[in-house]
Simulated scan of single mutants.
Amino acid sequence: MKSPLIIDYYTDILCVWAWIAQRRVDELNNQLGDRIEIRYHYMDIFGDVHNKINTQWQEKGRFEGFAKHVINAASDYENAPVNTEIWQHSKPTTSATSHQYLKAVELAYDRNKSIEIALKFRQAFFIDGLDISDINVLNTLLEQAGLDIEIIHNTISDGSALAALMNNYQTAKQLSLKGSPSYIIDNGRQTLFGNVGYRVLLANVEERLKRPSNEASWC
């Protein structure tokens, strides 16, 4: 059986474009099944939220302006609902807390469970308006999902979850990724990033599936 095409998928959990892309990634999995394998990784876009907003959005209304931007960005996508009070009622300080917990879940359970919890974290932020930089909020979400908090915390306490996260961050920098979400297709043979439409994403993946992975360059 032919090995699946690897898609390394990098996002920041607080990124609205990654939230919008969620439905596209799900559909890609549904459409192509075992012909592809999407590997989820995290990158540092909102590692220091307040510094980011107070510098990059200083002249555009800071949190209020950024909130309007997020709501407007998602308004055309019915599959990416956004709380009208987003970035107003609660202001997460960092995405790194959630990223570390997701790596902890991956180590304590498996990759699929981490992907499942990542969706729950995103829903908690974008729909419910919860502060997913708060470990108490994250612990509650994990408990509601029926996970064993102790074994997850063990991978945080011994540093292994943080090490796995740092590996993601460092790899994203080495790849010079430009934004979230980023799709690295077939071990770097193609890179897509940002608000890539589903048909464009599907066409690029299907084209790569048609080509042998050992195809020689003409150059």
Rank of each mutant, 00 (worst) to 15 (best):
S157Y: 15
S133D: 08
N112M: 08
H153Q: 11
L142W: 00
L162K: 10
E143D: 03
Q123P: 07
L130H: 15
D128Q: 08
E150M: 11
R122E: 05
N139R: 10
A164L: 14
L119C: 01
G129K: 04
L162H: 04
L130N: 11
Q123A: 14
L162E: 15
L107F: 00
F125K: 06
F121N: 00
G129Q: 08
I149L: 13
N139G: 01
T155Y: 04
G146R: 08
K113C: 07
I115H: 05
I152V: 12
L138R: 04
Q123W: 01
G146W: 13
S160N: 09
N154M: 03
I132Q: 02
A145L: 13
L147M: 14
K113T: 14
S160T: 15
L162S: 13
I151N: 15
F126N: 06
Y109G: 01
K113V: 11
I117N: 06
S114V: 12
D134T: 04
L147H: 04
R122G: 14
F126S: 01
I135W: 02
N112Y: 01
G129V: 11
N136R: 09
F125C: 04
H153V: 02
R122D: 05
Y109R: 07
N154A: 14
G159T: 08
S133A: 11
N168K: 00
I127P: 04
L162Q: 13
I156M: 10
I127F: 04
N167T: 07
F125V: 06
L141K: 05
Y169H: 06
V137R: 06
L165Y: 11
G129H: 06
N112Q: 12
E116L: 15
F126C: 02
S114T: 08
N136V: 10
L142K: 00
D110I: 11
Y169W: 01
D128F: 03
I156P: 03
L119T: 12
A164C: 08
A124E: 06
L162F: 03
L107Y: 06
N154D: 15
V137C: 02
V137F: 02
S160P: 03
N112L: 12
M166H: 03
I132K: 00
T155I: 10
I149K: 05
N154S: 14
L119E: 05
I115R: 13
A145V: 12
E143H: 03
E150V: 02
D134N: 13
K113Q: 14
N168S: 14
